[in-house]
Design a protein around this nucleic acid. Structure first.
Lengths: 184, 184
DNA sequence: TGTTTTGTTCAAAAAAACTTGAACAAACCT
DNA sequence: AGGTTTGTTCAAGTTTTTTTGAACAAAACA
């Protein structure tokens, strides 16, 4: 026993456990994810990466957060698609490694693109569909009422369509002092 | 039998059944509610009221949508709190009656106020909490890293705080042609 | 006051969303 | 090629959210 001595001082313990403030930040993101309609695990994963300067591998994430391989795999994929996480390859070792995107503009942009835009597009189809169905309405009054409603919905759709791009522009003014992270 | 004759022509069948376009609109709102993290029944209720020129009573809603009393009661309460529905009292009969708010500005405003604002406030507490926990961090490196992260989160919080009011302003420019509904 | 009508509440049932882990595929050595 | 290591998939299990309906409260009437 005692074949290997423990290094006098771990580079730091962060390889193996979370500090108190990290736990708190991770929990913050867990909640945030929830509020935005994403699974809690997504928030945890993002939160962990957000805390770290070093990129992490999948199994580091699994160990640190103590959640399943499946969740982490799915979470990382989704976060990557949202542009909230990116993967560096290699990095000395051979496994894939992950870092968090910390530019708010990118985060919000990615989120809107993946979540809001599809809904807007879907809304278009639905509106067309409604117009089509209205074409078959026999009852005069109902038809007229339906047409009034269709106008309102179209107007809403237009307004929201204009809003989204503006949000992306507005967020990310005043950013910049935020340089950091990313060993890359 | 035959004690009362049926009125020659119902004012229209809308008292008793939904037209095709209405079904479609209701389904649209069902989906929208879902996308925004609200129960489907809320969307259905709002959607139905949105379709109608006349205010509806609770049991009309129950019958038309074929959902339970409990759901409708809860749904109406929540929608009222969001400012998406308002209730007129009396109206000849004695039951409470409901109409949908159709001004997008109001809808978005109410939603943000009830959903987003509390989260922002909550975020503040959490940030304070994190600062407090950071105060106890012993490890130099971890502390420094934590402070960097706290700065980022604070900056995000500021940016988002500025965004919300702007959204309320932006939505609801170009509205106005949308007069209609509301017998009141 | 007693009766009916209208609306709320909340525990239990149902549905939906999330997580897990084991089986599988893919890439990487040797 | 054979043996590892790393990453994905998805059916089954778990947790969370939503819906239901029956019991209850409140208001309206007679």
């Amino acid at each position: 026993m005692g074949t290997y001595s423990i290094p006098l001082k771990e580079k730091n313990s962060s390889e193996f456990e979370l500090s108190d403030w990290e736990l708190e930040v991770i929990d913050l993101f867990l909640n945030a994810a929830n509020s935005v309609g994403l699974p809690k695990s997504f928030g945890q994963i993002y939160g962990l990466l957000f805390c770290r300067d070093q990129a992490l591998t999948m199994d580091q994430i699994i160990k640190l957060l103590a959640i399943s391989k499946g969740s982490v795999s799915q979470g990382l994929r989704a976060l990557r698609q949202l542009g909230a996480v990116s993967s560096l390859y290699g990095r000395g070792d051979r496994k894939e490694q992950f870092v968090a995107e910390i530019r708010l503009r990118k985060l919000v942009g990615g989120f809107l693109k993946k979540q809001a835009d599809p809904h807007m597009e879907n809304g278009m189809f639905r509106l067309e569909n409604i117009r089509e169905i209205l074409g078959k309405e026999k009852d005069e009054d109902s038809l007229e009422r339906g047409q009034r409603r269709e106008k309102i919905l179209s107007s809403w759709h237009r307004q929201l369509s204009r809003l989204l791009p503006l949000v992306k522009i507005i967020v990310g003014q005043g950013e910049n002092l935020t340089q950091n992270n990313k060993p890359e």
